[in-house]
Design a protein around this nucleic acid. Structure first.
Lengths: 343, 343
DNA sequence: GTCGTCGTTGAAAGCGCTTTGGAAGACTGA
DNA sequence: TCAGTCTTCCAAAGCGCTTTCAACGACGAC
């Protein structure tokens, strides 16, 4: 059922039918409802490609997922993020197109733009001084970044968790409990979020007059194994940490495996604080949090990022917007005062 | 840069340029290379919508993700699956469009079909006698199912892991170690894969002449908490299990948390076997598997499912294809002979 | 009665591509 | 020389929609 057929059925012109369905005012209410009713009855759906060709808008938004540097790791938070974004898109009539790529990301952007497949892009996993953002700005494709890019001086829209303050708070929390040797199991520090988290951690230590020990900082892709290996290595140090700060629930599972293996009891012998993205399949306890955590829902971030991008697409000339979400500190069962080693 | 402009630059007609770029034979090699070179130089990319409108093909494939019944759980394996599928799409020039939906899935199918947004669909999470498959067949949209739907008698293409045999093997493995009380921490049994897994488990028990104890079977969404709660409940039974069979790594983490809490040492006091989807961010150990597992890469499944669908779209009249992947049993550190309770 | 205005509808152009149905030129063989 | 092939190219229609421009009737004002 096409517009043409539908208009023939109704004895109207395509123009009028199109106007009636798209809510233009120059159409009488009686014909409009007649048209609406007929469209409903014949299950008419405008062809997306034809509409896109005519309007110049794709009604689609692209998410470009780089195959990560090593291990072809699919970020476990990614599923929740796009689920949130997807909710917003669905409500606004947008489709979500995903591109998994291996090599040249800017090539994909250029192609998206030239082929007109999408109206805008969500940028994932920004790095320090990320070249992609400048490329996107040059290409002229609207975009919003999930995260930020330190060291980049062009204006752009972003939504980020305050990673620095989250890790600052978490570290201070451990310091207040008396911990002085705190292991940081971080993500790859070329990633902006990991860089900021480390800054928060270091800032808290410095404020307490404590030195920064490189042996207590491990950065890698946030897998379970990274958590395990890093924690185990730190626990083998002559002066091992009494607490760990982990960058994700997945990492934390590895840290926990290492501490368990060492026969340490969590919260008594060793404290663990994690960053919790509120993943739907990996909740931090039902009522009482298992782990003390700085928490921020990545799904909600997806919802809001999508909203920002749609707004940008619809009103491109408004100034760039930024949204900084504060993570919430929830105290769980994984932390306790520093153990008395001499005791 | 449009076809029109490019053809003007070259002093050729749109027809010839189009043919040259799309590899039609009626064009001399000299003009073809001239055209190719110019297209490259001007970074010409055909407009996807216009092309789609003219050809009737969208060069896009839809993945419809139902917001799960409860907890709005995003299946953690989903990310790896679509990453695999995405690889295949990228190589074949297809785009991937995702739809997250809350309510009527068949409505989305109909809309996809009517609007022509996609050429085919991958169906996720099939249930027993799933009505969606019949709907899709009626609508006439090519599709391939990741999984199967027991009790459905129409022909369709699918790719599935042999869940029954995987759990049959895993159960038998535990039985061979002397375990007689084996807890099954399953997914929701309205899901076809969970149903089949249970069948494999029960079949192995029955073959050994053992009864099936409903108290040792728990089915729910495959979260960490499900694993924890179910295992804890089973361990509190008068005659607790000496082994667990868990439906995913995520569940297993919960099971492990419960056994740890009970002071049980894994593989000595209690054995755990899991189903391992080879998730990139949650690997089952680096060299030696931590958990004994039946393993099958969901990413590889994504790659192959995508391939099947593309083939189906390109040659719709071929008979339906089915692909049954056998999971591999890997023996890890989480299993051992049944403990001697009296000892 | 005429004119301008308002409210409502339509014809047709155009979005950027593919593809049908020729057509021009080059080349054969008689 | 000419009819009959190929080879190589093109004009134009068409995909299904939006949107510009124009038209038409009704109406009130003069």
């Amino acid at each position: 059922m096409t517009l043409k057929e539908l208009s023939k059925v109704l004895g109207l012109s395509q123009t009028t039918v199109s106007r009636a369905l798209n809510g233009y005012p120059e159409v009488s209410e009686t014909t409009r409802s007649r048209v609406r009713e007929a469209a409903e009855r014949h299950a008419y759906r405008p062809n997306a490609r034809a509409k896109g060709l005519a309007t110049g808008r794709a009604m689609a938004i692209g998410h470009v997922i780089p195959q990560s540097i090593r291990h072809e790791t699919v970020n476990p938070v990614f599923g929740d993020f796009i689920a949130g974004a997807g909710e917003t898109y669905a409500r606004s009539g947008y489709e979500m197109v995903l591109a998994f790529i291996e090599k040249d990301e800017s090539e994909v952007y250029r192609t998206f733009k030239a082929r007109g497949s999408v109206d805008g892009i969500v940028v994932h996993g920004p790095r320090l001084n990320d070249p992609r953002l400048r490329q996107l700005a040059d290409i002229g494709l609207p975009f919003v970044v999930h995260g930020r890019s330190s060291g980049l001086d062009i204006p752009y829209s972003w939504l980020d968790v305050n990673n620095r303050s989250a890790f600052h708070r978490a570290t201070r929390f451990l310091l207040d409990l008396g911990h002085r040797r705190i292991g940081l199991v971080n993500g790859l520090e070329e990633m902006d979020f990991a860089f900021r988290r480390r800054r928060g951690y270091e800032q808290a230590l410095t404020e307490h007059g404590l030195p920064i020990d490189p042996a207590l900082i491990a950065a890698d892709e946030m897998t379970e194994f990274h958590g395990y290996r890093s924690a185990r290595a730190m626990l083998a140090l002559p002066d091992p940490p009494t607490a760990f700060l982990a960058a994700s629930m997945i990492c934390t599972l590895g840290v926990r495996r290492a501490t368990d293996e060492s026969g340490l009891v969590c919260s008594r012998d060793v404290s663990i604080v994690t960053f919790d993205d509120s993943l739907s399949y990996l909740q931090n306890g039902q009522d009482v949090p298992i782990y003390t955590a700085t928490r921020s829902s990545v799904r909600e971030a997806g919802r809001r990022t999508a909203r920002m991008l749609i707004d940008r697409i619809q009103t491109p000339d408004t100034p760039h917007r930024q949204e900084l979400l504060e993570a919430q500190l929830v105290v769980g069962l994984s932390t306790g005062p520093v153990p008395n080693r001499q005791g």
